[in-house]
């Protein structure tokens, strides 16, 4: 159940891994699409928190090309529906996420990412 909304907020939290530690890179993923309630107000409120480039790149990597490369200023219904789908309906069920900086691998099993660190990796 890793949706792109949380993936877009998630950086590596291993010791001394402070730069270039976002976004975590998906590998060997299995996806599931699950419908969610469309809530335009939530999306508009959430827009400022999004790292747009990371979201678009990740969505494209997972096979969804519906989002424009630049964050649009006009938020029409079609755009919001696409954004809704990318953020809240694509679930990564299996696979892993790798930190681009320290290369720590966070495995995803049964939809749950394992964020536990070994003792020497704790900050």
């Amino acid at each position: 159940m890793v949706r792109l909304i949380t993936h877009n907020l998630l950086a590596c939290h291993a010791k001394d891994c402070n730069t270039n530690n976002f976004p975590l890179e998906f590998k060997d993923v299995q996806l599931e699409i699950r419908e969610a309630d469309f809530n335009p107000d939530f999306l508009k409120g959430f827009m400022p928190k999004i790292e747009w480039k990371a979201l678009v790149d990740t969505a494209r990597q997972l096979g969804d090309t519906s989002l424009p490369l630049e964050q649009p200023e006009m938020l029409d219904d079609e755009f919001l529906k696409n954004l809704h789908h990318v953020l809240l309906e694509i679930h990564v069920e299996e696979g892993s996420m790798t930190c681009p900086n320290c290369k720590h691998v966070y495995p995803i099993s049964n939809g749950i990412p394992n964020m536990l660190l070994a003792e020497h990796e704790i900050g």
Partner: peptide, 11 residues
């Protein structure tokens, strides 16, 4: 799956 004593990695 996370140990909160190890801290969070959220932006």
């Amino acid at each position: 799956l996370q140990d909160i004593g190890q801290g969070f990695g959220f932006r």
